[in-house]
Write a protein that binds this DNA or RNA. Structure first.
Lengths: 168, 168
DNA sequence: TGCGAAGTATTCGATATCGAAATATTAGCA
DNA sequence: TGCTAATATTTCGATATCGAATACTTCGCA
């Protein structure tokens, strides 16, 4: 019957302890581990919502990438943004185009390139999904005051501002 | 030649704006988007490191799950922890066992169950990888003071403490 | 005790993903 | 201009993943 699954908090505690023991720095691991644990949990919830929309996580990643970019993107860019091999994007786009969520259009200036964009139906699906996930996300942050949310966002944004300087 | 890829900061700004426009709440989206953007970037770096270790991200997830748990886990538990179908775990464990990184042992008390644990070689690989990734992770947080790291960790841990109450 | 329901790992067929090769276009430069 | 290297997408064969079905064990309870 298996022992019950440990709480997320307990998992986090153990994870940090393990990483520190393995040679990681505690102040680093507390943050990184928490960020990853949170993402994993969110991903599980999204997966559940996506079933209703008959989308895979990978397809959803394409839709959000296009929505967030606010402009057309090439298959290669989409592959990078969604952490997938370029060759995999071909099939994903085939499926999404077949469902009428995205469309491919040739670049007149560079005929090796193709632009992918969201259709109206794609935008509509995006809006529906976002309003659904915002509910869960609000619940997740419910124990933080407005001031704390602002501070949390600020600190994370400091970290993000540094990201590009690292692998450069 | 494609326009250069926008900075992580710019991507974050746009993403938040898009989500807010689609009906999300700003204080929520600033945090959630930042967390996800950070994880995505980290995943890209890990992927690069894992190539050297000849491990896939999925295999690495199994190794870390076992290390963090600090005890044996069943294939089903590993599948849940790594967000993968139970049937997929069978093959992953086959490969990992073949390489001598994990081992399966029967549960004497429940013969439907199998316990998976890290071998010495598995632990060793884990340590090497952690020390490698800690370098990158430290770089990521380099713009935060010790106090800020502590505050960031504290806020994230408040959020984590709530996770289990949500889908319950 | 006996028996149906639930739990656990695996197998199996269909699909998705990967890395390398193929195809086509463009860029750089002598 | 002509030629090589770099880019961008797709195709292709091998592998990984998924969901459903299978085989087996244990649990709940009459």
């Amino acid at each position: 019957m298996a022992e019950r699954t440990p709480s997320a908090q307990e998992l986090h505690r153990r994870a940090v302890a393990t990483y520190v023991k393995a040679g990681g720095e505690e102040s680093v691991q507390r943050v990184i581990t928490a960020v990853q644990g949170l993402t994993k949990k969110l991903d599980q919830w999204y997966a559940r919502q996506l079933v209703d929309l008959e989308l895979t996580a990978g397809e959803w990643a394409v839709v959000t990438s296009l929505a967030k970019a606010g402009e057309s993107l090439t298959p290669t860019q989409l592959a990078e943004l969604t952490n997938v091999a370029p060759s995999s994007m071909t099939h994903r786009l085939d499926k999404l185009a077949e469902r009428g969520l995205v469309e491919r259009s040739p670049d007149a200036e560079n005929r090796t390139r193709i632009f992918v964009s969201l259709t109206d139906a794609g935008w509509q699906l995006f809006s529906v999904a976002i309003r659904g996930s915002d509910v869960v996300e609000s619940d997740v942050l419910q124990d933080l005051s407005d001031a704390e949310r602002g501070e949390l966002a600020r600190l994370l944004e400091v970290v993000i501002a540094r990201l590009d300087d690292i692998d450069a």
